[in-house]
């Protein structure tokens, strides 16, 4: 196994996780459960392909993908914040809705129930191994950026306050509602970008193409104990496992199904507190005025 090709492939696989997990950290730190990342990614991926297909420019696709993730995150925000609907139920609904909407519009725009036509993308130089894609670099930088925002800016402080002690935040004049709307919108934009990367990298949209990546991202958030950098490291770890599985294919050393389980099993172990207890933000999932 070539260590260089291993590393580059690992980073390419990690990019969608990095985007979505960074978004998940922001939303969850504000107190809103992010079981919706899968749906945001899927809508972002579809909107990106739609935009790229009709404009011919992947940059327009990126904007559309951001919009796609944003729209679904605003539905999530209105349902959970304005209407105080159960966050887990809304999460399930958003994911089902994203599958349904992308399927319906796939049929409406592309007359297919499985995939879109091929669209333009970024880069493509074989020698660059995917590193001539600006989205890849954005994905690598997003976690440090989110860490800076969360820990070093007034907005980040408000996000953390909203997630840990919303009443205290309200009492010093922070609008918890507004902070949470912003945090959920950010999670939609970032997870949407994760979907954009995925779709433009494969040059098409396929039905349910996110295939559980949003849930791996939420695993990374929990395994990284709601810290952007640790969550990013978890993304890299999960991506490394997947890379290993791909590169070992054919050797039958470990059945691929067992490698697939790694992120999920590690998350359960982390939640059970075997290696350092994972404690969520205090107000996570609590609907309050």
């Amino acid at each position: 196994m070539n260590p260089f090709s291993f590393l580059t492939q690992m980073i390419r696989i990690a990019v969608p996780f990095l985007f979505a997990a960074s978004g998940g950290v922001v939303a969850e730190r504000s107190g809103i459960v992010s079981l919706t990342l899968e749906g945001f990614m899927l809508s972002g991926a579809f909107a990106a392909v739609l935009g790229t297909n009709y404009s011919g420019s992947p940059w327009v696709g990126v904007l559309c993908g951001i919009l796609g993730g944003l729209i679904f995150s605003l539905i999530h925000a209105v349902a959970t914040i304005r209407y105080r609907a159960d966050q887990v139920v809304v999460g399930v609904a958003i994911n089902l809705l994203a599958i349904g909407v992308t399927r319906f519009f796939l049929k409406l725009f592309f007359a297919s129930s499985s995939n879109s036509p091929r669209v333009a993308g970024f880069g493509g130089n074989i020698k660059a191994a995917g590193f001539d894609n600006p989205l890849l670099w954005l994905g690598v930088l997003v976690a440090p950026f989110v860490a800076f925002v969360i820990y070093k800016t007034p907005f980040g402080l408000r996000v953390r306050a909203a997630g840990e002690h919303p009443d205290a935040a309200e009492s010093v004049g922070v609008s918890v509602t507004r902070v949470r709307y912003a945090a959920v919108a950010i999670s939609g934009i970032l997870a949407g970008l994760g979907g954009v990367y995925l779709a433009l990298d494969q040059h098409q949209f396929t039905d349910q193409m996110t295939a559980g990546r949003g849930f791996i991202a939420i695993s990374a958030v929990i395994f990284g104990r709601w810290d952007p950098i640790r969550a990013a490291l978890a993304c890299l770890l999960f991506a490394a496992a997947e890379t290993l599985q791909i590169q070992l294919q054919g050797s039958h050393a470990i059945p691929s199904q067992f490698v697939e389980m790694i992120p999920y099993a590690l998350t359960i172990i982390a939640l059970a507190g075997v290696v350092g207890r994972a404690v969520p933000p205090a107000a996570l999932g609590k609907a309050e005025a």
Binding site: Y83, A93, L96, L97, G100
Partner: peptide, 18 residues
Amino acid sequence: PKQMMDVLQGVVILAVAM
């Protein structure tokens, strides 16, 4: 397209939850 029903399922859940 039957995919319309996938959309409606999501809409019903969301609407009841709200």
